[in-house]
Design a protein around this nucleic acid. Structure first.
Ligand SMILES: [Mn+2]
Ligand SMILES: [Mn+2]
Ligand SMILES: [Zn+2]
Ligand SMILES: [Zn+2]
Lengths: 126, 126
DNA sequence: GACATATTGCAAATCATTTGTAATAATAAA
DNA sequence: TTTATTATTACAAATGATTTGCAATATGTC
């Protein structure tokens, strides 16, 4: 009987470290820049995929064609405000029960998750 | 003094027709399939960009790496439920004043727009 | 109809992401 | 601690979506 296990490797340490450092959703390019080519891009991609499946990191999209990832931290489920001018990101946490209940009332879908992002201008850019 | 004007051309007619036909967010590949190579892919892209800027079409992303577009119709502002199994899309319309007010209370961002999509399983796929 | 120029098709480029594979490193077994 | 097993990596190449440069063309104007 063979053992299966997920190994604690250099790329995994480093990607985790990068995500922890930023504590906001970051693109693969940003992670790579932070890690200064210490690991290959494909390893970053594969590691993020793993972290997503393992519920360690969450994937978001802001509409610029790049996926972004952030650690699922103590913060818990939350959304973001993105500045369309400087790209600054602010977390937004809110009660969503009413929202979700409304949707469940209107539809027969079994809802598993949702994505909600706000776009506009941060205080500095207004 | 030179005249400027947006011309009513074959690609624009056809892309509009394709969007109207589907009346749900569709990818460029789907539009192209519908139009059976009557126009070039690059023309579809350029036309959609134009329609987006002109507030004729809206862009959405469901997380599969393809942008999707739908006409801004009488329906008005709304969101979607996407079936993670069969890809079926349902529109969802709801009052969002409270939601937006909450966010405006919590943040100093000047909010211009937001994206909200729900993912789960449609009645058929449950 | 002729002109001015906005727009197209085509080909090539770009950008993010994925994939195949031989070499390597993490862990288990001896 | 050495050896064996196999999960994981780096690298290179492939893929897929989107963008771009440009000469040819079509549209609206005079
Ligand atoms: Mn966040
Ligand atoms: Mn819709
Ligand atoms: Zn800003
Ligand atoms: Zn379904």
């Amino acid at each position: 009987m063979t053992k299966i296990g997920i190994r604690y490797t250099k790329p995994r340490k480093l990607v985790f470290e990068a995500l922890a450092h930023y504590s906001k959703p970051v693109s693969v390019a940003e992670i790579n820049y932070y890690l200064k080519n210490k690991i290959d891009l494909s390893s970053i991609y594969r590691t993020l995929e793993l972290m997503k499946k393992s519920n360690i990191a969450e994937e978001t999209e802001f509409g610029d064609g790049k996926k972004r990832y952030e650690l699922i931290s103590e913060k818990g489920h939350h959304h973001h405000l993105i500045c369309e001018n400087c790209g600054d990101i602010e977390d937004i946490k809110m009660k969503e029960d009413e929202l979700l209940n409304k949707v469940k009332t209107k539809s027969k879908f079994a809802i598993k998750k949702h994505k909600l992002e706000f776009f506009g201008l941060c205080p500095n850019c207004q």
